[in-house]
Simulated assay, not measured.
Amino acid sequence: MNTQNRFSKRYSFEFFPTKTEAGAEKLLATAQQLARYEPDFFSVTYGAGGSTRDRTIDAVIGTQTATGVPTAPHLSCVGDNKQEIIELLDHYKANNINRIVALRGDLPSGMGLSSSELRYANELVSLIREHSGDHFEIEVAAYPEMHPQAANFKQDLLNFKRKVEAGADAAITQYFFSADSYFHFVDRCESLGINIPIMPGIMPITNYSKLSRFSESCGAEIPRWVRKQLEAYGDDIDSIQRFGEEVVTRMCERLLQGGAPGLHFYTLNQAAPSLAIWENLKLGERR
Rank of each mutant, 00 (worst) to 15 (best):
F41S: 13
V44Q: 08
P144Q: 06
D40E: 15
N96R: 12
E123G: 12
I128H: 03
H74I: 02
V60N: 04
A102F: 02
G110S: 04
T65K: 15
N152V: 01
Y175S: 01
A59Y: 02
H135I: 11
E84T: 12
L88I: 02
Y37I: 01
A171F: 10
V125Q: 06
L158N: 11
D169N: 15
A171I: 09
S114F: 10
D40H: 13
A141P: 04
G133M: 09
S114C: 01
N122F: 12
A151I: 12
F136N: 09
R119G: 01
Y143K: 02
Q155W: 01
R119P: 00
E145I: 02
T52V: 09
S115M: 13
E137T: 11
Y92H: 03
S51I: 05
S126M: 08
N81W: 03
F160P: 00
K161W: 02
L157K: 06
S178L: 14
I138N: 03
A48S: 14
S76W: 03
A94W: 01
G133Q: 08
T52R: 07
Y143T: 03
E137F: 01
R36M: 12
S132E: 14
N95Q: 14
Q83R: 11
E137M: 05
L107T: 02
Q155L: 07
R99Y: 01
I172L: 12
V125A: 03
F41T: 06
T173D: 09
Y46V: 00
